[in-house]
Design a protein around this nucleic acid. Structure first.
Lengths: 207, 207
DNA sequence: CTATGTGAATTTATTCACAGCA
DNA sequence: TGCTGTGAATAAATTCACATAG
């Protein structure tokens, strides 16, 4: 039940709000004002209220927001109310780090499959996941895994993306430092350390 | 040629343009049209022209842009024309992957120092970098390293940020899944896999 | 008196349309 | 004809101000 289309920029902030709310929830708090949350997250309080208003009225004037209610709602919007399976392609340094990353749990993500081309890695078990040959990527469709993380070297990125698209994957998180081309129906997000470092550098006054 | 402030969103795209241009340059091309670059990067051609127009007129109608000239200009804007030293705090799974990451070179970034708290890691040499004790973070000021990457567990993130600020670091790339609070003069960018995964999920139609 | 929710104002970014140059 | 560069139009996001509810 959507009241409005939630603006893209607000969607980007929802996971951040969720993290903050979970943190307060763990401390046993029941309610929080937009002001408190704003201070905690380093975001403006009116921005938070505006964002929440896009999907309904949850707050109580004078008291603030019911934390659990808000968590439930954000989880629903971001489809985090059920565990989502994610596949990982590329179990090198970065891929291994992703497999070991402890932060997926609170967002209900589960790395359910890992792939590599390296014969030495295939068959190895890392964190309960057996590394498979990339030629098995097509099995993702049957296994209903429609999110994937690409952590392969740059020259294998497009090839990997093509295979993922064929396997009916709907969303790709691309860690390779290059653009990948996919059909419009597939959503891609890129993460590149250097891109972010470069932006940082731009905003730092010359010393 | 008017002097405009480059919009934030355009700054975010500059590193992407640079990557594309370098790729064409390696292939020996001298010129490229906004159309060609747009197709390659999956960005609109008018967006590219508009962005370039913020920092000057470089193109030749009918021919396109001189690739080398453009590369030089973008590098200058992003301060990538000289090597920038970056420090890394946290040499766990993720930190090790960052140390091994081969992509820093083309952006002229160099991991020049690495820190950890784990006695077993301190003193170890990884990729020519000797891991130091985090108590040495204050030396960054003397060493004129003013960019840092935080790759420590969540509960150590704020502590690490505080130490970095004390060491006069001006820009922080935070991989810890939490918000860190720093003085306004310090620029922070956050990278969080789950945040991006969650956005992906939002845009994928329910199946 | 505190804190939400939201229209309206403002700022910022994207897209268009086309004049003008090679 | 092909492509740039940029004002103008449109769209989107942020910020503000305040009516309103507990």
């Amino acid at each position: 039940m959507k009241y409005h289309k939630i603006p893209d920029e607000a969607v980007r902030r929802l996971p951040i709000y969720l993290r903050g709310l979970l943190s307060f929830s763990e401390q046993g708090r029941k309610n929080i004002s937009s002001h408190n949350l704003a201070d905690f997250l380093g975001i403006n309080h009116w921005q938070i209220r505006k964002d929440f208003s896009y999907f309904g009225s949850f707050g109580t004037p004078g008291t603030g927001y019911n934390i659990e209610k808000l968590i439930r709602q954000i989880r629903k919007i971001l489809k985090l109310n059920v565990t989502s399976k994610v596949s990982l392609v590329g179990v090198g340094n970065l891929g291994s780090a992703i497999l070991a990353y402890p932060g997926f749990r609170i967002y209900a993500y589960e790395i359910a499959a890992a792939f590599d081309t390296n014969a030495k890695k295939i068959g190895r078990k890392i964190k309960n996941i057996t590394v498979e040959d990339v030629s098995n990527l097509h099995t993702l469709k049957k296994r209903k895994i429609n999110l994937a993380i690409i952590a392969v070297p740059q020259d294998a990125a497009q090839r990997t993306a093509d295979a993922l698209v064929k396997a009916d994957v709907k969303g790709i998180l691309n860690f390779s430092p290059c653009c990948i081309v996919v059909p419009k129906k597939v959503k891609v997000m890129n993460i590149d350390i250097c891109t972010d470092l470069a932006c940082l550098a731009y905003y730092i006054p010359a010393s």
